[in-house]
Design a binder for these strands. Structure first.
Length: 269
DNA sequence: AAAGACACCTGTCCGC
DNA sequence: TGCGGACAGGTGTCTT
């Protein structure tokens, strides 16, 4: 999926088209997503959208009559299209707006979700146990060092743990560890403060640059206007079987936490 | 409490 | 061409 940069790109693309718009109708053609789409979302008919925020990889859409919580799973994307335009395959949800436009939610693998919350969604059970936003000041070396104490798991697993820090998925975990010169297998508790500082800086830098490029498109992801994200061209190790762009040695591929992991054993120690 | 395995689902790619 | 298997951006839940 969509990791943090892709969700943030989606939020920014949708925002100007949905804020202050009234919802005319919500059409659900496939309610079986990760969890069934609740019927209660129909209570938002005629509601006015007044905010679109992101927390972790969730999009929080606020209206004057309740909240929609969207998640893109592994293959989800959201677009703005004229209400009359034909739907693509695997387009499961349409939100028709009062200006003739519509939000289209497409998710081939259906690992995503649409949930309803009557009140402030940050109190929703799915959102209460989340760690800090990686681009916030709360994610810093003091914090990460505390989280790493007594943790025997590989550093890559740790930074992908949403209880520790949110938004870092498989692509950006690999890229951040490459940028900070840390072997993804290293046990979290055995990394020096100085190197953790480099990792914090790398995570912030990689995520920010990916946002600036509209995210990474591998297969399914599109921005709200239908264009792909362009950060794929900036990836150094993820998905690349070729040589390390820095030293020329072969990029290695291993499995960590059941996820493919790419790194350079010469540059990352 | 922490770590690891598994499940959910569809599509694509590669080797035979 | 067809078929089987591996693999793909996430994460809640269950078992050790």
């Amino acid at each position: 999926m969509p990791e943090l940069p892709e969700v943030e790109t989606t939020r920014r693309g949708l925002s100007p088209h949905v804020i202050h718009r009234r919802i005319e109708r919500i059409e659900v053609s496939q309610p079986q997503l990760r969890w069934p789409v609740p019927d209660r979302i129909q209570q938002l008919q005629r509601a006015t959208i007044n905010s679109l925020e992101r927390r972790a990889k969730y999009l929080l859409m606020g209206t004057d009559q309740g909240y929609l919580i969207w998640h893109l799973g592994m293959s989800g994307s959201m677009r703005i299209m004229p209400a009359a335009a034909a739907g693509a395959k695997h387009e499961h949800i349409r939100v028709l707006l009062d200006d003739g436009n519509s939000i289209r939610y497409r998710d081939p693998r259906r690992f995503g979700a649409l949930l309803y919350s009557e009140s402030e969604p940050l109190t929703h059970p799915l959102l209460t146990e989340l760690g800090p936003e990686p681009l916030s000041s709360g994610f810093n070396v003091d914090y990460l060092q505390r989280q790493c104490q007594k943790r025997s798991t590989a550093i890559k697993n740790l930074i992908m743990d949403s209880h520790v820090v949110v938004g870092v998925g498989n692509i950006y975990a690999c890229e951040s560890l490459f940028a900070s010169g840390i072997n993804p297998k290293t046990r979290a508790s055995r990394i020096s403060r100085q190197r953790l500082q480099r990792l914090v800086d790398a995570i912030k830098m990689v995520l920010q640059q990916a946002i600036d490029h509209g995210g990474t498109t591998l297969q399914d992801f599109t921005q709200a206007d239908g264009k792909p994200g362009y950060f794929r061209h900036s990836l150094n190790v993820y998905g690349q079987p070729g040589p390390c762009p820095v030293c020329g040695n072969d990029i290695k591929r291993i499995t960590l936490g059941q996820r493919s992991t790419f790194y350079c054993s010469h540059c990352q120690r």
